[in-house]
Simulated assay, not measured.
Amino acid sequence: MRVDLFDFELPPERIALRPAEPRDSARLLRVRPDGLADHIVSDLPQLLQPGDVLVFNDTRVIPAQLEGRRGDARIGATLHKREGPRDWRAFVRNAKRVRDGDRIEFGAGVSALAGAKADDGSILLSFEGDEPVEILLERAGRMPLPPYIAARREADARDAEDYQTMFAREKGAVAAPTAALHFTPGLIEALAARGIAHETLTLHVGAGTFLPVKADDTDDHRMHSEWGRIDAATADRLNAARAGGGRIVAVGTTSLRLLESATDEDGIVRPFEGDTAIFITPGYRFRAVDGLLTNFHLPRSTLFMLVSALMGRETMQAAYAHAIAEEYRFYSYGDASLLLP
Rank of each mutant, 00 (worst) to 15 (best):
Q49C: 14
G68P: 09
N57L: 04
L44Q: 03
T59P: 08
I75R: 05
I75W: 06
E67K: 13
Q65P: 00
A64Y: 11
L66T: 09
D58C: 07
F56Y: 11
P50H: 14
D43S: 01
T59H: 06
P63M: 13
N57D: 04
D58G: 06
A64H: 10
I75G: 06
G68N: 09
R74I: 00
V55M: 07
G68Q: 07
R70M: 05
N57G: 03
A77G: 01
L54Q: 10
A64E: 09
I40C: 13
G71F: 11
L54F: 11
L47T: 00
F56V: 10
I75K: 06
V53E: 00
V53M: 01
D72R: 14
G76V: 00
P45H: 07
P45G: 08
D38N: 13
R60G: 05
Q46R: 14
G71T: 10
T59F: 10
V41W: 01
L47E: 01
D38V: 13
L48F: 03
L48I: 03
P45E: 05
P45V: 03
G76F: 06
F56P: 12
L44C: 05
D52K: 08
R69I: 03
H39Q: 04
H39S: 05
R70P: 02
D43H: 04
Q65C: 07
G76C: 00
I40V: 15
V41K: 04
G51N: 11
E67P: 00
D43A: 02
G68D: 06
Q65D: 02
L54I: 11
L54H: 12
G76I: 00
D52I: 08
E67A: 15
R69D: 01
E67M: 13
D72I: 02
R60F: 01
G71N: 10
Q46I: 02
D58R: 15
R60C: 14
A64Q: 12
E67T: 10
I40H: 12
V53D: 01
G68K: 07
I75C: 05
P45W: 05
R70W: 04
A73L: 07
D43V: 01
V55T: 10
